[in-house]
Write a protein that binds this DNA or RNA. Structure first.
Lengths: 232, 232
DNA sequence: CTCACAGATTGATAAATGTCAATTGACCAG
DNA sequence: CTGGTCAATTGACATTTATCAATCTGTGAG
């Protein structure tokens, strides 16, 4: 593990309040691996063995049924994924695949459960993290059920806009076909949805998004804290 | 609170392993209320004040956006709801409304968080419960994203079938328009989807479902443990 | 017992979304 | 450079799903 990895992990909400020696004990059993793009890290249905922490790169969580595949979410560094399966000691409900070259820390699930039992500060952090994850899936599902595909795209763009601190020019963080799947539509439909938003000042060239008429886009999108965050 | 209420609550996964005196302390601050059908118990966006436990009756969790409304899930007795918001001390993401006359126990959120901090057995149960909730929303979202409306209905019927211990005749647990919304379609479409399943031996008369050709229905539905449960 | 009402169904039609095929465009290996 | 590959786009069309309007039906109040 690199010298800079540990502080980055330590800074995560999940670990930041842990006592020094507990954290050290937990991280001691962990190890780092670097994966090229396109590697399937986790296969849905498999038994849980490691809590994963993405240090650098990009990972998608996806699910399959009957020959169909859909992106459920993407993981950005630095963050953990599949904590719920780890804590329940249950099978993975989603698969995970690297989208870019990625550095990933693997913490044995048994160590995590052990730390949870032994350290009440960590226990509280686990609950906070799980509750946050739960709430973000609820938001995602509300987005899917209550909005049309164009509305989902519009609000997604506004979320990206906030995430880049209100800059009017920013980048899409993934390929358009992945984004389409995440937003619950086909790539063809995403292309059309982008065109539909042109009258609201949305210009997308490659991965670069430019917003030239934010008020109109907001009026069209009707963003809502209880769907689009932040989580309060 | 009735004499029979406490044992029923005590039997829940969330409370069953708690020590006697911790449980008593938690339940002492709680109180019961009976609501007629159609009462809005929780309004999305409000601050969390109570953990709710449905003792008897029926409750739906729903969400709204831009004048649209959708059923997110239904709660059957005996179970808790909105644990995540309670633990995060955050605003509700969903509203709740009684579908039938319902007896509900309200436990002050601060008491729950207190018990979590003081009792590691309860803490473990909270994590197990949260992880289970998280996983069931993931399943629900997979169902929505990977399946067509007829496929969702078919698999829903099979889940009901398992829930009634494999009986070939059983009842729909809610009004068809609520079911339609839960399954992500309009009532009109649900009617048509039911007809579409007739060739697979699905007969629905009012709320009564009769399955006369289970093998064909299963072949059509392609149920999957990682979507339809059970959670392993 | 009967009427009124809300939910359920049906048919006709519209809108949203997906599929297929062809083309364009960007990027990387050689 | 340049050819090959894969993603993105576009157009034509099919399918799914929603909407609207018109019954039908079961249930509870009076």
């Amino acid at each position: 593990m690199r010298a800079t990895d540990v502080p980055a992990i330590r800074a995560l909400q999940l670990f930041c309040d842990m006592s020094e020696h507990r954290f050290d004990a937990l991280i001691r059993g962990a190890y780092v691996q670097v994966f090229p793009p396109g590697v399937e890290l986790i296969r849905e249905g498999d038994a849980t063995d490691f809590l994963h922490i993405l240090i650098d790169g990009s990972v998608e969580l996806f699910a399959e049924w009957n020959g169909r595949e859909t992106v459920m979410s993407t993981v950005r560094p630095v963050s953990t994924f599949i904590l719920a399966a780890t804590m329940r000691d249950a099978r993975y409900l989603m698969s995970a695949r690297t989208l870019a070259k990625s550095r990933i820390v693997l913490v044995p699930s048994t160590d995590v459960r052990h730390a949870f039992d032994a350290d009440s500060v960590f226990a509280r952090a686990v609950v906070a993290e799980l509750a946050t994850c739960y709430r973000s899936v609820i938001r995602y599902t509300k987005d899917l059920k209550l909005r049309s595909s164009v509305e989902r795209l519009a609000n997604y763009i506004l979320r990206l806009h906030s995430r880049s601190d209100g800059a009017s020019v920013f980048e899409l963080p993934m390929e358009k076909r992945k984004l389409a799947s995440l937003l619950g539509m086909t790539p063809e439909n995403l292309s059309r949805a982008i065109k539909t938003l042109q009258p609201y000042g949305v210009e997308i060239d490659g991965a670069q998004v430019t917003l030239v008429n934010l008020p109109d886009l907001v009026k069209f999108s009707k963003p809502n804290t209880l769907i689009d965050g932040p989580d309060t």
